[in-house]
Design a protein around this nucleic acid. Sequence first.
DNA 1: ACCTGAACACCGTTCAAGT
DNA 2: ACCTGAACACCGTTCAAGT
Lengths: 214, 214
Amino acid sequence: MRPRNGAIDQKARSFIEAARRDQIVQAAVEILSELGYAKTSFARIAEHAGISAGLISYHFDNKSDLFQQVVADINALMDGWLTEHIGDADTYREALRRLIEGFVLFCDSHRAHVLALGQLLAGVGGQENGELVRSQREQSVGQIEQMLREGQEHGEFRDFSPRFMAVTLLGSLEAIPGELFARPGTDVAAYAKELSMTYDLAVRRSRLRRITRG
Amino acid sequence: MRPRNGAIDQKARSFIEAARRDQIVQAAVEILSELGYAKTSFARIAEHAGISAGLISYHFDNKSDLFQQVVADINALMDGWLTEHIGDADTYREALRRLIEGFVLFCDSHRAHVLALGQLLAGVGGQENGELVRSQREQSVGQIEQMLREGQEHGEFRDFSPRFMAVTLLGSLEAIPGELFARPGTDVAAYAKELSMTYDLAVRRSRLRRITRG
DNA sequence: ACCTGAACACCGTTCAAGT
DNA sequence: ACCTGAACACCGTTCAAGT
């Protein structure tokens, strides 16, 4: 029958199927970033990719399935970028700095991807629509949360709710694509420095209580 | 002391037209918050309001016009709430604290409104779609930016780009509705305290340099 | 297996027609 | 002025039919 399409678990796909899915996702990213969510349709994606609209439905269960794959692919790209950027930081404080500055640089150098992602992350109200999108976001929160918690356990960060701080930081990060779009001339390096410094001030132990170190 | 909230250019409207528009906006808020953006259609809004779908098009130029009115109305509601909550704060530091905690409380006590807003703020990529939505956001950024700049001029805050910090803070604030939706049992009062403390740490002058204080 | 194009139900918008 | 319901072009999805 038809290929099983569940977005997340990588089912074994034929060479041509994998290629088609990549092609469609790529076209979706470009249309989303150029025309925005409202004007993004299967017809336009298909036209841009030089295929029929029906073929998209053949390779993806539905619109939501396609968009979830888009989000997953961009997240994977970003994850690789950030992992490489964080590298072997000696301290959690340094890792946090690199995470933040790395994210800003990623936004700057992948504007189309990050704009498309912004179009899709949207809200969290729709129940069935963004099920997997929400779980992707939950994963991002979880990764940041864990880094913050470990930093606390190593005595580098002050006492705060890691969950709360992860949500707060992620909010600040997700505001960046919109800002770069609204003000394309933004000094990205300066923005990155300001953001990492701001969160360094927000999470560090107070001077008075910082006794032990290293 | 607060900037005027230009709540959309109020065209002279008849009593019945104003009532209909309010009714339609109200229905849109409920459908958006309950079903999410994807499932929100004129047909469903009209059914929920007990009118024909054509009547919505009669009172609003188009879908975008309706949604912009929804955003404007919710923003006006929030603006009133925050203005009252900030009140006559003695210092900018205190005003910032009240702004942040007031916003968290607003999100908690107006979940439907704030969820609907989250569905609409979405991305910034679509060119014609969210024109006024973007300008509303720009206005929010501008108001926060001005408060931060004045706080700097009064020597209460450290040296940072007010524009950058406003965008960063607004990002953290806009992450709240999603978090309250994802974790309805969140301790809202504690969240508010953590957030205001976090930004207090982020913007205050360093202990060493804080000499004068009026 | 892979892909197209027609068919279907639904969408936002328009508009002739009613009050 | 206010409102309806039919008509229109477009949407996502399905599916018979082609390779």
